[in-house]
Computed example of a mutant assay.
Amino acid sequence: MTQTSPPGWHPDPGYTGFGPRQERWWDGTQWTDHLRVPPAAVRSRRIRIGAGVTAAVVVLAAVGGGVYLLNDDSGGGNDSASAPSASPSPGPDRQRGGGPGGGGNGDDRGDGGGESPEQDQPEIEKGYATDLASGISIPVPDGWKGESGMGAGVTTGSYACPGDTDETCVRGGVFSAPAEALKLTTRTAKATAEKDIEANAEASYGEKIYGGITSHEELKSEAVTVAGQQGYRVRWKVVTKNGDDGYVESLAFPSPLAKDMLVVVRSGFDINAKAPALSVLDDMTKGIKAASGGGSGGGTDA
């Protein structure tokens, strides 16, 4: 093991091959317990359709009605725990916000000084599903199930999907992910929500699970404040060919971690007496907040 590599983020030497490939903080002499998802490597891989979740999925970056698993495409992990040999990526204080003209002096902080990585690591809080990639926490209502990870998911009311009884659907689901993970390249919250709603509807209530969407009605298209950020939401009522009709919503807003990162929250609620009321969705939206310990690099644009 070399002792000459300066502190920085490097590929996790303990990566097992499951879930997202993360980076681990090297403090100049040893590997620490601090992990993060590489900002430039947030990817998603669709693993199922319908308003359901698979119980085995732990790391969620999902859509209302569908579940996505963040997964690195670059192959297996590195089982070696040796010190990193490449130059480290900048520390967390120079990864967030500001752009090239932002803070930091560009050095490698080889003396171990300056901001430590844990100051930028979001914490998973009780009663919330925390999206570590986006830096937000979604409240988990009583009786609901929350999943935290590189993306967050909150679901309730599981049942056999109408178009494929081998699949499990849920009566209500709220999921978050960075817009980049959903391949959304629009630059404003309004444009992102407007572009995402059709994909959200199709993933939630389309294809074989519900026989496709026969029509939709726009219920909301409006600005909304979420986690202190100026965002935008679009809500549709969709009519399906098989099974329950539903409500879908795409909500977009700047991440509290960095104002140039957009977060997308996709929701899907069945229209059924056993499904939660839309007022629950409104309450959950109001309750979304910046994840504790995740920094405050966001802020709204003028």
Rank of each mutant, 00 (worst) to 15 (best):
S87W: 12
S87T: 13
S89A: 14
G91N: 09
D93P: 06
Q95A: 09
R96V: 14
G97V: 11
G97L: 09
G98E: 08
G98Q: 07
P100A: 01
G101P: 03
G103D: 12
N105C: 13
G106A: 03
D107P: 09
R109K: 12
G110R: 01
D111I: 09
G112M: 00
G113I: 06
E115A: 13
P117R: 02
E118L: 06
Q121S: 10
Y128A: 02
A129W: 04
D131C: 02
L132G: 03
A133K: 01
A133V: 00
A133F: 03
A133R: 01
S134Q: 14
G135A: 01
I136K: 02
V140L: 06
P141A: 03
P141S: 03
K145T: 15
K145L: 08
G146Q: 07
A152Y: 00
G153Q: 14
V154T: 03
T155P: 03
S158P: 15
Y159F: 13
A160K: 15
C161Q: 02
D164T: 00
T165M: 08
T165I: 10
D166K: 11
T168F: 04
T168K: 05
C169K: 04
V170G: 06
R171D: 08
G172Y: 05
G173C: 04
V174C: 04
F175I: 06
A177Y: 13
P178R: 11
A179Y: 11
A179L: 07
A179G: 10
A179C: 05
A179Q: 08
E180Q: 13
K183G: 10
L184A: 04
L184V: 05
T185G: 09
T186C: 01
T186H: 15
A189I: 02
K190E: 15
T192N: 02
K195W: 13
I197P: 03
I197M: 05
I197S: 00
E198Y: 13
E198Q: 12
E198T: 14
A199D: 15
N200I: 00
N200T: 10
N200A: 00
A201S: 13
E202K: 08
A203M: 07
A203C: 04
A203V: 03
S204E: 06
S204H: 06
Y205H: 07
G206E: 11
G206Y: 10
K208H: 15
Y210V: 01
Y210C: 06
Y210K: 02
I213P: 08
I213F: 04
I213R: 01
H216Q: 15
H216Y: 15
E218L: 07
K220D: 13
E222V: 07
A223Y: 13
A223F: 14
T225Q: 14
T225P: 12
G228T: 05
G228H: 09
Q229P: 07
Q229W: 07
Q230C: 05
